[in-house]
């Protein structure tokens, strides 16, 4: 929990130090730095990315909830699912804090029924099906967090994104092992 608090404090410090123009320069966007706040606000662009990430975390939390309540997950696996879900809740809370502190409004979660439909929950028939869905979402999330890194104006936020990707990669690795899937044979398969 204190990590989450620290994370959002760091974001504030980062923003407090740097003007929009400095953030633009640091991130290698001279055009933005030159135009200052006339162009679309770089902080607002970062908030938009954080909100997309928040949508992803809402979905992950709900997916683990659906999995846990499905009756398909065995007692041995359940604690791991609950642990991973708790990580996603921490991610969600950190993102909400950061968005609010940057003056944005965090997106709300959708309805359970929407997630069930979008994730094809009706087709889940076994523990392996649930784990496969979780693994797919975690891999997608890891790659998503890696793929948005170049878009952040703030390097602090880029680093946060990399840390989130590391958590999702750790989840994916554990799930792939539980499913008996082989490890990637090549290096640098994530985020290419």
């Amino acid at each position: 929990m204190s990590d989450v608090v620290n994370l959002s404090r760091r974001l504030v410090v980062g923003r407090g130090f740097l003007s929009a123009a400095a953030v633009g320069l640091l991130a290698g966007a001279p055009a933005l730095a030159a135009e200052g706040k006339k162009k679309s606000d770089p902080a607002a662009a970062d908030v938009a990315i954080l909100n997309v990430a928040l949508g992803l975390e809402h979905e992950a939390i709900e997916a683990y909830q659906i999995g846990a309540e499905s009756g398909l997950v065995s007692q041995g696996v359940l604690p791991v699912a609950v642990l991973f879900q708790s990580h996603h809740k921490s991610h969600r809370d950190a993102l909400i804090n950061a968005i609010k502190q940057m003056g944005g409004s965090p997106v709300a979660a959708k309805k359970r029924a929407d997630y069930e439909k979008a994730l094809g929950v009706a087709a889940l028939k076994s523990e392996a099906d649930v784990l496969k869905l979780a693994a797919k979402l975690e891999l997608g999330a890891a790659n998503a967090y890696l793929g948005v890194i170049p878009s952040f104006m703030s390097k602090d936020l880029a680093k946060v994104s990399a840390r989130l990707a590391a958590d999702e990669t750790m989840h994916w690795t554990a799930l792939a092992q539980a499913l008996g899937q082989p490890l990637p044979q090549a290096a640098l398969t994530f985020g290419a």
Partner: peptide
């Protein structure tokens, strides 16, 4: 597609 876009 599944690994890069499937998160979203």
């Amino acid at each position: 597609y599944e690994s890069r876009c499937g998160g979203c």
